[in-house]
Simulated assay, not measured.
Amino acid sequence: MPSPSAAEIAGIIDHTLLKPEATRAEVDALVAEAVELGTYSVCVSPSMLPVRVPEGSDLRVAVVCGFPSGKHTTRVKAVEAAEALTYGADEIDMVIDVGAAREGRYDDVRADIAGVRAAAPAPVVLKVIIESAALDEEQIVGACRAAEQAGADFVKTSTGFHPAGGATVQAVRLMRRTVPSLGVKASGGVRTLEQARAMVAAGATRLGVSGSRALLAGAEQAPTGY
């Protein structure tokens, strides 16, 4: 199977701006760039809503929830997700309680995700960030299965803010094998076209990228925190 073209890669990118210091002007620029590049969506922080998407564009808006620690209560995450929808979000990228997964409390992980799913019902797309670099293989499998049981649409590798690191081909491959019916989003450290293609080959169906222009041009990106 041939490697996806740059245009095909663009079509599965969530063009991302999650820096704490981000401004509304920078989000507007992000949207304009996303439309120019042909990315699937933009991914922003809740306080950046509503996002001004050009009329006639099919660009989606993804918003993070419980970000980046995942240590918010389920009720807080649910309220955050519900509010994001009222301001025009199409997709929610929530962070699990990573410590619960590390302790093997997968029922708690499932309940947390289910709470957000109830607040953001289908057809809203729910992606579940498991922070794969902070988990061992057994914990990755447990977290992915909890997401599937709770009705999530995607499992996602990383916030991009954890010191343990971001996406790896090995984690994406394991996630794809564990929940073949769900989408898999690789995010955190995907900075080159070669890396993006490797993630897709491993099973990723969506990519979280902050430096999309450089990636699609085949240029090396400097680390940006996502």
Results as ranks from 00 to 15, higher is better:
residue 2 P to G: 06
residue 11 G to D: 13
residue 12 I to W: 00
residue 14 D to P: 05
residue 15 H to N: 09
residue 15 H to R: 02
residue 20 P to K: 05
residue 25 A to Q: 14
residue 25 A to V: 05
residue 29 A to E: 15
residue 32 A to D: 15
residue 35 V to I: 12
residue 45 S to L: 14
residue 47 S to L: 12
residue 48 M to L: 12
residue 48 M to K: 12
residue 54 P to S: 10
residue 56 G to Q: 12
residue 57 S to H: 08
residue 60 R to V: 01
residue 61 V to W: 01
residue 62 A to E: 00
residue 64 V to Y: 01
residue 66 G to T: 03
residue 71 K to N: 14
residue 72 H to G: 05
residue 73 T to R: 13
residue 75 R to A: 14
residue 77 K to I: 00
residue 86 T to H: 11
residue 86 T to K: 15
residue 89 A to D: 06
residue 92 I to F: 03
residue 95 V to M: 12
residue 99 G to T: 11
residue 102 R to A: 06
residue 105 R to M: 13
residue 106 Y to G: 04
residue 112 D to P: 02
residue 117 R to T: 01
residue 118 A to H: 10
residue 118 A to L: 14
residue 120 A to H: 08
residue 121 P to W: 08
residue 122 A to M: 07
residue 124 V to L: 09
residue 127 K to R: 09
residue 128 V to R: 00
residue 131 E to R: 08
residue 133 A to H: 08
residue 134 A to E: 14
residue 135 L to W: 01
residue 138 E to Y: 03
residue 143 A to L: 06
residue 145 R to T: 13
residue 148 E to Q: 15
residue 158 S to E: 04
residue 158 S to M: 04
residue 162 H to D: 15
residue 165 G to Y: 04
residue 166 G to Y: 03
residue 170 Q to L: 10
residue 170 Q to H: 13
residue 170 Q to R: 14
residue 171 A to L: 05
residue 180 P to I: 08
residue 184 V to S: 02
residue 188 G to S: 08
residue 193 L to M: 12
residue 193 L to Y: 02
residue 203 G to Q: 07
residue 204 A to D: 01
residue 208 G to C: 02
residue 209 V to D: 00
residue 209 V to Q: 00
residue 210 S to R: 12
residue 216 L to K: 06
residue 220 E to D: 14
residue 221 Q to T: 15
residue 224 T to L: 13
residue 226 Y to D: 09
